[in-house]
Design a binder for these strands. Structure first.
Lengths: 140, 140
DNA sequence: CTTCATGCAAATAATTTGCAGTAAG
DNA sequence: CTTACTGCAAATTATTTGCATGAAG
């Protein structure tokens, strides 16, 4: 995603274009899943004045604007990602790395909606825990 | 589940049988999904001396023993449940209530494992967000 | 210029830890 | 008796808030 597109996304939601916001979005685009501290440390180089409070406030604002999503992992640190194509999360319980696996889950959501009687289902957050390929090789 | 079974579960994992642990497990059995504070307040009646720290410590121990599971919801409060049959979670974004929907997800896990190249997948944590039947009726 | 965002410091939550005393096996 | 658990208080970590200043539109 180019910087111009990031700016467009902010404009569309009537959010002001600030270097801090651009930096947060770029940081999340470069690296897939980051904690608040990852983001804070990552952007300090480009925006040295940035404060942790601003990162928190913007993460909130960008989530409300549907630009970011939070990812809940078994560790206690909350992670964030920039919205992309549908996917589920794979979490390795050995190395604690989190990766995306792109997959269309519309059928699954549809099925759950029909069977459960829920009125509508917008979001699906799916986290699968196991052992990644690299860790399973290392252990042999 | 009878008290005897709960005791069995603890014994199996070589955990000591204490009134605090029994109370936590019973509390979670009675009510589906509880926060740490829910549990703490719920069991204070039966075990008045109990401290919040003990609840935290036991939740940790019981999770390690695979007796409890944590459920991550979009709200900031962490919830816990006692292990039962396979299910996914439905979260209503209006009333913020969390409910279970029992469904076998082995096929889904198997499919993800095969397609993603992950070595193994043990756990699946699935949370679907939408609007429950009651809230959708209320709004009409 | 008007409104919203930033950065600081202080406040609040949420969770963890250390340790002396106590109960379970 | 020995080991693990409890409860207290203090420490740590994570997140939020208030407010004066500064930047964006």
């Amino acid at each position: 995603m180019s910087k111009a597109i990031l700016i467009e996304m902010l404009k569309e939601k009537q959010l002001k274009i600030t270097p801090q916001r651009i930096a947060i979005m770029e940081e999340l685009e470069k690296n897939g899943h980051l904690t608040v501290d990852d983001i804070f440390n990552g952007i300090k180089l480009r925006v040295p004045s940035v404060s942790l409070a601003t990162v928190y406030k913007n993460i909130l604002a960008l989530q409300n604007a549907n630009i970011l999503k939070s990812v809940k992992t078994p560790t206690h640190k909350q992670k964030y990602e920039i919205n992309t194509s549908p996917h589920v999360h794979l979490f390795c319980k050995i190395c604690e790395n989190l990766e995306d696996f792109e997959i269309n889950i519309n059928n699954f959501k549809e099925y759950c909606k029909k069977e459960s009687g829920y009125h509508c289902i917008d979001e699906a957050s799916i986290l699968l825990t196991g052992i990644c390929k690299r860790c399973s090789n290392t252990r042999k």
